[in-house]
Nucleic acid binder design. Structure first.
Lengths: 128, 128
DNA sequence: TATAATCTGATAATGATTACTATTATTGTT
DNA sequence: AACAATAATAGTAATCATTATCAGATTATA
């Protein structure tokens, strides 16, 4: 992987915006500092960074991927009303990979958990 | 939800094919028995059935959803080589929802775990 | 059986993502 | 510093899964 200004800026943007943005959102967020960047470049680099384990790619139910810089392993809670993504700490599922290995014999490289429900904000809104 | 022949046949097809098929695959599998069914109908009904909890919708990493009839709660292992989906028993993650609730306060309605790795078949193929 | 509600097939439209291509930037080497 | 080799970019066209639309058919209900 060769250095590029664009990739650096994309990563920087991700670091500064812990909102689990979509590719399109990253693109918008960068526009002011790098007006000529192409959407395709954003996609290309986000995927590249995810493949190399630098960032995390999260599949939403609405068919738009989201990206996350956070390095410590953790899981996600996706609000079924507003599609916002919240972090869930890793230790809610201790022994998980060990159990899978023991019970199925499958060798797991990675693991993603998506919890779904209505987030506190949306629950408030429903009440009012 | 009103009865329809098409929906019944879609569900039947899913019951008889525990291969976690995509919508397109369900469509092909049905073609012989119901040659005039429309792909849109397959999509419409699969989503409807999933929304009503009759079947399960699984998000793959390659951007094509897969569907599963199995009623007992369980998780999935997706092979990163061939994209085949395997079942993983529910009890690999005991206390999961309780832990989330306790540690985050979030109310979880559902939860999906996707394990990723290379399946035994593909590991064999790599060796040869 | 008449009415309303829901469903269907066919196809157009959408929207996220990827492929393509000519050009430009980065890197290692004389 | 100049050179070639490699990889990256911008812009846009193409792809592909999925959804929307809509006229006509089916199903449920009164």
């Amino acid at each position: 992987m060769k250095y590029s200004k664009q990739r650096e800026q994309i990563l920087e943007t991700l670091k500064n915006n812990c909102i689990h943005p979509t590719a399109e959102q990253v693109y918008s967020l960068m526009k002011s500092q790098m007006p000529n960047i192409s959407l395709a470049t954003v996609y290309r680099n986000l995927n590249q960074l995810a493949e190399n384990g630098v960032i995390l790619k999260i599949d939403s139910l609405d068919g738009t991927a989201r990206f996350d810089y956070c390095r410590e392993q953790h899981y996600h809670f996706i609000c079924t009303k507003c599609n916002k993504v919240y972090d869930v700490p890793h230790n809610v599922a201790p022994e998980l990979l060990k159990n899978v290995q023991e019970q199925t014999g499958l060798t797991v490289d990675s693991c993603e958990i998506s919890f779904r429900g209505i987030c506190p904000d949306c629950q408030q809104n429903i009440k009012h």
